[in-house]
């Protein structure tokens, strides 16, 4: 079990305190932790459990149930490619193959330089403009391998 440094642990306690009084707060708390840390660190689980008066097993069970909650730090940019049927009908599998090659990683992995994480996602609601991808919260449609390369190149440029 990874222990959180005390200042991070305090940050988690502050987050819990903000949501504690709302009904059914756990998922909201986890969202807030992920928004702040980029993922839900394993060491946050006992802290959340203690603050919400739940067992560690209950908190762990919720964290691991939902695909959206990450267990590791994400890359600087997260690329989520839709793999659902509508996007498949417009070549999502080929696009995914291209993305794996271009980034040199598989789904659920992060590049060694920490720049990109690649995730599958099941429907972005952009099915009339398939195939679709969500990159750092921005939606892209009718995406081609060339278009993908352009987007990645733009993200890879060091910020000025």
């Amino acid at each position: 079990m990874e222990h959180l440094p005390s200042e991070q642990s305090a940050a988690v306690r502050r987050i819990v305190a903000q949501h504690k009084e709302r009904p059914g707060p756990l998922v909201e708390v986890l969202h807030a932790i992920q928004a702040s840390f980029g993922y839900v660190p394993e060491g946050a689980v006992p802290v959340v459990a203690e603050e919400l008066n739940l067992s560690r097993a209950e908190v762990h069970g919720v964290v691991t149930f939902y695909h959206y909650f990450r267990h590791t730090r994400p890359g600087a940019h997260t690329v989520s490619l839709c793999q659902a049927e509508s996007c498949q009908s417009m070549g999502a599998e080929k696009l995914a193959e291209h993305a794996r090659r271009r980034l040199g990683i598989d789904f659920h992995q992060t590049t060694a330089d920490g720049r990109f994480s690649l995730e599958p996602i099941y429907c972005l609601g952009n099915c009339a403009c398939s195939p679709a991808a969500l990159i750092d919260g921005e939606l892209h449609g009718r995406l081609t391998p060339e278009g993908f390369d352009e987007l990645v190149a733009a993200k890879a440029k060091p910020a000025t």
Partner: peptide, 26 residues
């Protein structure tokens, strides 16, 4: 508004209610 967390099953109504209560969406 409450946000889900990437679980297709939470479109099933009872699973959605569990999730709204902050639990696993069973």
């Amino acid at each position: 508004v409450r946000l889900g967390a990437g679980a297709y099953i939470c479109g099933e109504e009872t699973s959605m209610l569990e999730s709204l209560e902050g639990k696993r969406g069973e």
